[in-house]
Each structure stands twice: as structure tokens, then as C-alpha cells.
Design a protein around this nucleic acid. Structure first.
Lengths: 159, 159
DNA sequence: ATTACTGCAAAGCATTTGCAAATGC
DNA sequence: GCATTTGCAAATGCTTTGCAGTAAT
């Protein structure tokens, strides 16, 4: 465990400092090991503010001193999802997208058909209605997801 | 165009009889051709009441007299989606699911983590909130989708 | 010391595509 | 007759996996 965090922007460093112990707890409860590769992946995840895909992350970590292989990136992201630190988004026909959830309160997405951009929004009433629907069906919610497909403001203008 | 519809259950035959002209209109507007393969795929889609995946449909049509190849099934489902007759559901990590939307009013899904089953529900207020959210962001909605992940009533009981 | 994790490259799986033959217009 | 569509099989692209070596406990 000797991974250099010196060069991270302050904001990222802080998120990592807070999120890493949570991931460590999760790993220990699972009897899984706390490894350097897992810390590097977590750090890279928190170095990105927007949505990302596994493969881009893997590409970023495929060279340089903090090298982590593609397989390990996929395996670690699965663990991070299980731990609740990242959220997977499978809506488009391309590949899964991820976003970190630590310090990033629950929200939903609009996805633009033209530019592919994600717009985030949140709505407490929406969440209430979803909870009520679950009650009605005796369904025990673990997670939910709302996506709206369409055209974003910018793309409407530039038509 | 000589595809035998005699043996279809009454209910299916009627859906096909109503939906097929809609698809024909769509194809003509697009300057695409009205082919036998496309009618066979549409018929097979309406012969299923539940969710299905492209590959199962392709398997069903890979033998027998109404043979349609896998490639054509995928291509036709894409057209049917574009026409609005079917809806694609990409939520799980497996493959896309489809459902037909004709005579099947808009609804949302709960997906059970344990048995993989889909539960349908709908809620007018939910739709209103979504429309309102779009107004706020000047987003032009084409479609939306709500999914709830968790455990269904049956799977909770049988724990 | 033991057991889990990693890297690598190969396999897997759903989906897409190129091309020659078939079909609709 | 001409252009689109089809079937087939091969290719693609994301993701997972087997295995031998490496690191964590």
C-alpha cells in the first residue's frame, strides 16, 4: 500500500480520503483484501466529476505508474457498485455508464438523443411516489432509476 | 406476401390485424419496404404477452416455415422501436428486453433481484412530475422510463 | 504460509455488418 | 429492372474468465 496521492487536486484528495475508508470497511466485512489496485481505481473514479464508462477508466489506468489492468478495473467497479459508492447506468445501447455517489446526492437523468449528454435533476415528490408504488405492490425497494429520453435545450436551439 | 395467419389465437390475430397497418404506414413514410419477414417478426412480437429478448424471438423464428434470420429480427425490432410499436428496456446487465406497446398502455417496471421477474405499475402523477421536470430544464421529452430494483413479494416470502 | 488478487490474453455473449442472392416496388 | 432487404457467417465491442504469478493477511 504505497500509492502516491500528492498530486491530486485538493477537492479530489478530500473525497478519496473520505470515501476510501468506507470502501475499506466494505471490503473487510466481505473478507476481501485492501489492495493498492483497488485504491487506485477508487481514486480515479473520484477524479472524474462526470459520468464515465469502465473502458475509459481502464484506458486511463493502462499506462503510467499507477497501472491497473482492464480486468481489475471491471472487477473493482463491480465491488464499488455493490458497496454503494458508485451507481451503474444502463440505458443506452452502447455500454454501461458509472457515476460516483459519494457527496453526490441521489438524482435522475435526462439523456439527449442528439448530443448524448446527461442532465441531472432531482425531485423529492418523485421519490415519494415511487415509495408509495412499492408499498402498493409489497415490493422491497433497493434502488430506483428514472430516465427521460429526448432533446436538450442546446440541441433544440442549434436545429 | 403470403404468410399464413390462420393458426393464430383470436386475440393475437386481432392485435396483428390492427398493428400491422400502423407498421406499414410507418414503413411507407420511411420509403422502406413492406416485406414478409417484417410481418412475421411483428406477428411473433404480438404472439408474446410478456417481456422478451431479441435472441429468444430469433430462436423461435429460426426454424419452421416462418423462418426469419437473427440479423433480420434485430433489424426489424429496431424499426418497430422507431415506429413506437415496441419499447426497449435496457436495465439489467444481460441483454435488452422488449415489450410491445400496442394495446398496452404506458407503464413502469419493478425488477426483482432474486427471480428476475418484471412487475408493471403505472401512475399518472409520476408522469406529471416527469413532464414538469422537463419544462424546468427546457428538455423536449420523447420517452421516459422508471425502474425500481429490489425484491418482489413472492421472493420476500420464500426467504 | 496461506489465500485472495492481479495481469494478461483468450473466451463469451449480444448485437451489428458485409456481401451475394432474393424480393418488393 | 433497380434498389432494398434478407440470410448467412464473420466481425465487433463490451465484459468476463482461466490461469500462473504476485501481493495481502
Amino acid at each position: 500500500m504505497s500509492f502516491d496521492e500528492q498530486e491530486l487536486p485538493e477537492e479530489v484528495r478530500q473525497s478519496v480520503e473520505e470515501a476510501w475508508p468506507l470502501f475499506v470497511d466494505f471490503l473487510k466485512k466481505k473478507d476481501a483484501r485492501v489492495t493498492q489496485a483497488r485504491k487506485i481505481v477508487l481514486t480515479q473514479v473520484f477524479s472524474r466529476h462526470d459520468h464515465f464508462c469502465a473502458d475509459d477508466l481502464a484506458a486511463e489506468l493502462s499506462s503510467g505508474q499507477n497501472h491497473v489492468s482492464r480486468g481489475t478495473v471491471y472487477r473493482t467497479l463491480a465491488l464499488m457498485e455493490e458497496s454503494g459508492l458508485v451507481r451503474v447506468i444502463r440505458d443506452t445501447d452502447v455500454h454501461a455508464h458509472y457515476e460516483h455517489t459519494y457527496n453526490h446526492p441521489h438524482h435522475e437523468h435526462m439523456i439527449c438523443d442528439k448530443c448524448g449528454g446527461f442532465i441531472e435533476f432531482s425531485d423529492g415528490k418523485l421519490v415519494e411516489l415511487i415509495e408509495k408504488a412499492c408499498e402498493n405492490k409489497n415490493f422491497k425497494e433497493r434502488n430506483h432509476r428514472v430516465v427521460i429520453f429526448g432533446t436538450c435545450e442546446n440541441c433544440i436551439k442549434s436545429d
